[in-house]
Simulated scan of single mutants.
Amino acid sequence: MTDHAPSSLAGRLVARRVRYYYALIGLIAVMFAAESVMHFTYYTWSRWIVTGTALVATGLAVGSGLRAADLGLSRDTWARGARWAGVIIVAVIVVIGVALAIPPLRELFRNEAFQDLPWALWSAFVLIPALTVIPEELLFRGVVTGALLRRHSPRVAIALQAALFGLWHIESSLGLTTGNEGVGDVVGTGSTGAVLGVLGAVAFTGGSGVVFGWLRVKTGSLLPCLALHWAANGVGAVAAALAWQLA
């Protein structure tokens, strides 16, 4: 009995680790399926499917043993995270403001989805946080990063979640060159331009994922990631409307 105990324990540990990775892969598959449903259907409810997936995934992660600290939500990190978040938002606003003042750069902000300023403001302060920023940060820098950090080094966890984050944006960038005049002028609006637009978006968001992941590990908090993500998308939406008005 004693001779078999260590091997039996090792077998249980291996089985537990296999189940862990199966669960993580299953979560990632569900995430990407939800993203596809949101982008390729036109129902009102489907716009909220990623948000719902993020909330359910966070609840299941907590139920499976991940702690608030694993998700970047520990109270101990709130003050530090808030300081980083404030600096990040101010820095992004300054950078975008400078870019808007330069006509060639201003053209890159002219996204057709945000030609109307009231709609851009509604999107920036309601829709973008609820449908994009909060759910994506909960999924990628919360659940996925927290789960990966349980089994891997910070460097590996950051790299893996960043790669997934880049791939996550394939579908949302399919119409990038036709919906953004500035980007379309740079890479073209034909099939080659569309491919370059997608590749560029994946590379850019993957690189952004590295920055988000580094912030998450550096501060231990999700707040700086939320701040940077919102500033890039929300302030970017308002900047797009201003760019159209200044054109």
Rank of each mutant, 00 (worst) to 15 (best):
E181P: 01
W48V: 01
A23V: 12
T219V: 07
P118A: 04
I25E: 04
I93W: 14
Q115I: 07
T44F: 15
R83A: 00
S173Y: 03
L100N: 09
A113F: 13
A243R: 04
A237W: 05
A239V: 03
L167P: 03
G146W: 04
H39T: 03
A5I: 13
G207V: 01
L105C: 05
L139R: 02
S8P: 00
R19F: 14
T2S: 11
S191R: 09
Y22P: 01
G197P: 05
L174W: 01
W119H: 12
V211E: 02
L117V: 06
D3C: 00
Y43H: 15
F32R: 12
R19W: 15
L105H: 06
F109P: 11
W214R: 08
E112P: 05
V37E: 11
A10T: 12
I25N: 09
L164H: 10
H169C: 07
I96C: 01
R17I: 02
A237T: 06
I49A: 08
R75C: 01
T145A: 13
G72Q: 02
G182H: 02
W84E: 06
F114H: 12
A247I: 01
A247F: 04
R150F: 08
V98Q: 09
I134K: 10
I128C: 03
W119R: 11
L228D: 06
A15P: 10
V156S: 08
S46A: 14
E137M: 08
V98I: 15
W168N: 09
A163W: 09
V133Q: 02
V98M: 12
L127S: 11
H169M: 06
L117W: 07
A99R: 10
G209Y: 07
G72I: 03
V186L: 15
L246I: 10
E112T: 13
L27K: 13
L164M: 15
G220A: 10
S123R: 05
L13T: 08
A247E: 10
G190Q: 02
A57W: 01
L100W: 12
L149T: 00
V195S: 10
G206R: 02
S74Q: 05
G184N: 04
A82H: 11
V18C: 04
V94M: 09
P135D: 00
A33R: 09
W244P: 03
A99Q: 14
A85G: 09
S173L: 03
I102T: 08
A5Q: 11
S36Y: 14
L127V: 04
H169Y: 11
R67Q: 11
S36D: 07
L174K: 02
I25S: 15
E136H: 08
R47F: 14
F212D: 00
